[in-house]
Write a protein that binds this DNA or RNA. Structure first.
Ligand code: SF4
Ligand code: SF4
Lengths: 154, 154
DNA sequence: CCGAAACAGGACCATTCAGGTCTTTAATTA
DNA sequence: TAATTAAAGACCTGAATGGTCCTGTTTCGG
């Protein structure tokens, strides 16, 4: 249905909320803040920690905190960390689909996939924050979609 | 993983291939052409028929043919027909997610979702055809992403 | 007029993967 | 050093998707 996995969504929410706190925050605390069940929060944080989005402090008085600014995290990178790289179809990046059919559409999908990926790459978590959400995201989309190799009439 | 459902992918392929034939084509024939297993092709065609993408001819010498030109079919509409409307998160269009958490990110997701949906709306199946794939799709993406309410600095 | 061919529609099963829970392990602090 | 607390990893469960099949209806050819 072309929907984002819930875990990826949670990851975004958790990171944004974490960015609004100061000092280290524990999993249970984040669970309360976000409303997501504790075990799930913990699971997501583990993944985010493994991918370097957050720094963990073990032991008593431990918890998590952002490894870098929200502005330096793209939506796409978080999604990729949690769910794997964005790939609309099975044949992006030269991979061939199990049916092995010679549909020839792969190229088109590849372009579309790249465009969407680039768009999400250009949207930072900072932009996702409620207060300044819409305008920034819009301009990001507008700005980041044209990029790499898009030429008007070619 | 932000991936398209396989059925939707097949639907696109089938429609494009169907557009390259003339006269009515049977499910088995399309299965051979596309490489997709016959039962699945039949299933997809039923859905496409129900949504008015193809016209069916029953009885002997029956088969399917396009209801309208490939240029008049958008990628998004096909996806919506097969998989339901595009919705990255559970909270697009004012719907609220089961966790009921007050994350406040819904607005941002809504914008991103709309942008992606619009992009796919603007890409016709004709554009997906191998020969002219990349350039057309690229310009479509470039052209269709700015549209509806995106303003530069607002 | 009869039989074969092909779609329509539905139900059914099997698999996959996401979502969630649990146990173990390590670090911090008193 | 021992108790406390949180991270890390493994495991299980369940829903959704993908895929298959069967029955009924319609049309063309013999
Ligand atoms: S576009 Fe064609 S090759 Fe790519 S995944 Fe779909 S069917 Fe397979
Ligand atoms: S963005 Fe927030 S409200 Fe929307 S689906 Fe995700 S968690 Fe739920």
């Amino acid at each position: 249905m072309l929907k984002l996995s819930r875990l990826a969504d949670y990851a975004i929410v958790i990171l944004v909320k974490l960015g609004e706190q100061d000092g280290v925050v524990t999993s249970p605390a984040l669970a309360v803040i976000t409303g997501v069940p504790e075990p799930t929060v913990a699971k997501v944080l583990k993944v985010l920690s493994a991918h370097g989005f957050v720094l963990s402090q073990r032991g008593a008085k431990g918890g998590y905190r952002l490894a870098r600014s929200l502005a330096d995290m793209s939506v796409a990178s978080v999604i990729a960390a949690v769910d794997g790289q964005i790939a609309l179809t099975a044949c992006v990046g030269g991979r061939e689909c199990d049916t092995g059919l010679s549909c020839g559409l792969c190229g088109s999908w590849d372009v579309i996939n790249t465009a969407i990926r680039s768009t999400l790459e250009g949207i930072s978590l900072e932009s996702m924050r409620p207060k300044e959400a819409c305008p920034t995201v819009l301009s990001q989309i507008n700005k980041l979609n044209a990029p790499h190799t898009v030429r008007e009439g070619a």
